[in-house]
Each structure stands twice: as structure tokens, then as C-alpha cells.
């Protein structure tokens, strides 16, 4: 039974995704929509971390239900440097790079949820299946957000 491993792996990835979203938010404080939306959707991956920790107990895992947070000073440092760079064009390229990274990360996690759902069905674990059916759509929304934002932001960055 490797389901425990899959849960542990997903718990780690969702944790990383939370960090990615929050760091990205801070780095793009002057791109206001990115700043706020990434924070809003980080809530989803945070909830996934907590939920995975909860079901993990059934598989003998002791996972932290709290997503790990960057220390406050790192966040404020990132926000400050974003503000200092606010009038310059370089953050445009950085935003594209960050969105690309986010997309890849969310795509990986989406596959992991797929795997977990398949495993849950095979193991007839209804709770685990319900969890992945609840969480996976949100991961897909993060994925689509990264894709849509990339489509919207790239023409101006690349053609100016």
C-alpha cells in the first residue's frame, strides 16, 4: 500500500505551492491583481495541506496541518523590493517566469491528485476519493489562472 507515500508527497507539494504563491504575491506587490489573487488562491492550497494532514492520520502519518510560512521579514523584503522596482520594466519578465513556474508546479500537483484519486478508488477509500474530488478542481483553477495570466501579460512584455 503506497497511498501513504502519495499523501505525504502531495502534502509536501501543496506546501511548496503555498510558498510559491505567497512568494510570488510578495514579489509582484505592484502588480496588484497578481498580488491579491495569488493570496486568495493560496488559501486553497493551505486548506489542502490541512485536509491531507487529516486524512494522513488514517495512514499512520503525522503531517503538519499548518502550511509553512515564510518569516514575515522575508515577505516584507520581497514587497519592498517589488515597490522599488515598480517603475521599471524588468518585473514584467520576472512575472512571466514566475507564472511559468507556477503553471508547471500546479500541473504536477494536478497529476498527483489524479494519482491519489485513482489509488483511493482502488483502495475503496471513500473519504480520500471525496477529498481529491474536492481539492483537485481548485488545483486546476490555479493552473488555469497561471495560463490565463501568462497569455494576458506576455504580449505587452514581449512586444514592447
Amino acid at each position: 500500500m503506497k497511498l501513504g507515500m502519495a499523501i505525504e508527497e502531495l502534502h509536501r507539494s501543496e506546501n511548496d505551492l503555498t510558498s510559491t504563491l505567497l512568494a510570488m504575491s510578495d514579489r509582484h506587490k505592484t502588480d496588484h491583481e497578481v498580488f491579491y489573487v495569488t493570496r486568495d488562491i493560496a488559501k486553497w492550497s493551505r486548506e489542502h495541506v490541512a485536509e491531507l494532514a487529516r486524512v494522513g492520520r488514517d495512514y499512520g502519518l503525522d503531517l503538519d496541518p499548518e502550511a509553512k510560512d515564510d518569516p514575515g521579514f522575508v515577505a516584507s523584503l520581497r514587497q519592498k523590493s517589488s515597490e522599488l522596482m515598480g517603475r521599471r520594466p524588468e518585473p514584467g519578465l520576472l512575472l512571466l517566469a514566475d507564472l511559468r513556474h507556477l503553471h508547471r508546479q500546479a500541473a504536477g500537483i494536478s497529476l498527483d491528485w489524479e494519482l491519489l484519486a485513482q489509488g483511493a478508488q482502488a483502495a475503496k477509500d471513500r473519504e480520500l476519493l471525496a477529498l481529491s474530488e474536492r481539492c483537485h478542481p481548485q488545483t486546476l483553477r490555479i493552473l488555469r489562472f497561471a495560463n490565463a495570466k501568462l497569455k494576458e501579460a506576455s504580449p505587452q512584455v514581449l512586444a514592447s
Binding site: 505592484t30 502588480d31 496588484h32 491583481e33 515598480g86 517603475r87 521599471r88 520594466p89 518585473p91 514584467g92 494576458e152 505587452q156 512584455v157 514592447s160
Partner: peptide
């Protein structure tokens, strides 16, 4: 979709 105002202001802020 056509660029919305707040994004236009952001592009002007960045100089593009």
C-alpha cells in the same frame, strides 16, 4: 480581452 484601465495604468507605470 482588451486591456482594462487599471492594467493600462500599470503599463504606463512600467513605461511600456
Amino acid at each position: 480581452s482588451p486591456t482594462h484601465l487599471m492594467q493600462m495604468m500599470r503599463y504606463a507605470e512600467q513605461g511600456s
